[in-house]
Design a binder for these strands. Structure first.
Lengths: 145, 145
DNA sequence: TGTTGACCTTCCCATTATGGGAAGGTCTAG
DNA sequence: CTAGACCTTCCCATAATGGGAAGGTCAACA
C-alpha cells in the first residue's frame, strides 16, 4: 500500500513515516516507480511507534524497544527495565511540575487579580521569597558589621 | 559590568543572555570597544527570566510577563490570568503523565522481567488492550454477519 | 487520447531553547 | 610585550514535527 494508506491505518503522518525511515526505524519496500510500498508488518511497526510515542518514550527509546520487540530471544527483563526507567523519569518530572503548581497557586492566591497594579506574583518573579529572605539576612548582617 | 559577570550574578549563561537580547527581552548598553555593558537593572531582568523559566513558562510567556512587570500601570488581573493559565496547562500535563504512569505500571506488573522473552509490555505496545478488544469485537461481529 | 486532480517523490525551511566551537578583537597582569 | 582570559559574531547541532515548493506518477473521466 502507499504511504497515505499506511498513514491512515497507523495514525502516523506521511511526513513522520518518511522521517522514521530516515532514522532507520523501518525500511519499506520500493516499487518500480519509486513509491514506498507498505505491508501489514510495516503498519504494525508504525502502530508500535505511535503507541510508544503516545506513552512519552523518546524516539531513541522507541528504537530500543523496537529492537527488543523484533528480537524473539530478548529477555523480558530488558523491556521491564526500560519501562521502569521511563516510569521514574515521568514521576520525577511530575513531582517537579507539582512543586511549580504549588508555588504558583500560593502566589496567585496572594494576588488580588483586579485593576490594581500591585502584584505579589511579579514581586516573586523579580525576587523569589527564598532570595528575599537571604537578602534580608545579608542586610541585617551588614548592619551588624 | 561584562557579560560574564552578569551571567554569574543572574545564573543565566552568557550564551543565553545574548540570545535573550536577540529576541528583545533586554537591550544592554554597549561600550566603545563593542562589549555589552550590564547594569543592576539588566541583572534583575535576567533573574526575572531565570525565575520564570524555572517555573516552566515559555519564552513567549516570559516576554509577556516581563512586559507586565515593566508596565507600572498593569492590572494585576492580567498577571493572575497568565499564571492561572500556566497552572491549568501544568495540571493537564501532569494528569496526562499520571495516566501514562498508571498504564506503564500496570503493564510492568504483568511482566516477569526475567530471562524469558514473553512480555506483556511489548504485547501492549504492538496492540494496546483497547484496540485488541475492538479487534475481538469486530471479529465476533464478522462471524455473525 | 488527453487532461485533471490526487497522489507520490525529494529538498529546504521553521519551530523551541540551549549549547558547542571557530575565528578574531580586547584587555590586564606579569 | 606577551600570555591568558575575556569579549565579539557566525555557523552548526539538538528533538520531533510540520509547511511548502518543484516535479514525477497514476487513475478516472470526458
Amino acid at each position: 500500500m502507499n504511504i497515505g494508506d499506511a498513514a491512515e491505518r497507523s495514525g502516523v503522518s506521511a511526513k513522520m513515516i518518511r522521517y522514521y525511515e530516515e532514522i532507520a526505524l523501518l525500511k519499506p519496500a520500493r516499487r518500480a516507480n519509486g513509491y514506498r510500498d507498505y505491508g501489514q508488518a510495516d503498519v504494525s511497526v508504525l502502530q508500535f511507534i505511535r503507541r510508544t510515542r503516545d506513552l512519552g518514550f523518546s524516539l531513541e527509546e522507541v528504537a530500543n524497544l523496537l529492537a527488543l520487540w523484533r528480537d524473539r530471544r530478548r529477555p523480558s527483563r530488558e523491556v521491564k527495565r526500560l519501562a521502569a526507567k521511563h516510569i521514574t523519569d515521568l514521576e520525577r518530572r511530575i513531582s517537579e511540575m507539582r512543586a511549580v503548581v504549588r508555588t504558583l497557586k500560593t502566589l496567585a492566591d496572594q494576588c488580588h487579580g483586579d485593576e490594581r497594579s500591585e502584584c505579589p506574583i511579579l514581586d516573586d518573579f523579580a525576587a523569589p521569597a527564598e532570595i528575599r529572605k537571604v537578602g534580608s539576612a545579608r542586610r541585617r548582617a551588614a548592619k551588624r558589621s
